[in-house]
Amino acid sequence: MVDAGEAAEVIREWLRKNVTGDRHMMDDHPLIESGLLTSLQTVGLVVMLEERFGIVIEDDEFDEDNFASIAAISSLVASKTA
């Protein structure tokens, strides 16, 4: 069981290393709509989340609704590990 807050920390750290640099990212900041996260980077994020949390993100879950923000992604992760 992974708590959404814990998942959010992991995602924020990954974003800092791989995408955003030192900017502090709010949980509800739009990641995809703002053009911050490219589609291929999102694939990289999914691979990391699947390995780190031992989950499988299904094809139809891999969409803009579920990856809109740190909050959305972390709640998806939390729901998969519940």
Partner: peptide, 18 residues
């Protein structure tokens, strides 16, 4: 380390992701 992150942040804000 911090300079690299700040440079990356600058690039993200001022250029398209590609």
């Amino acid at each position: 380390g911090s300079a690299v992150e700040a440079i990356r942040d600058h690039a993200m804000r001022n250029a398209p992701p590609y």
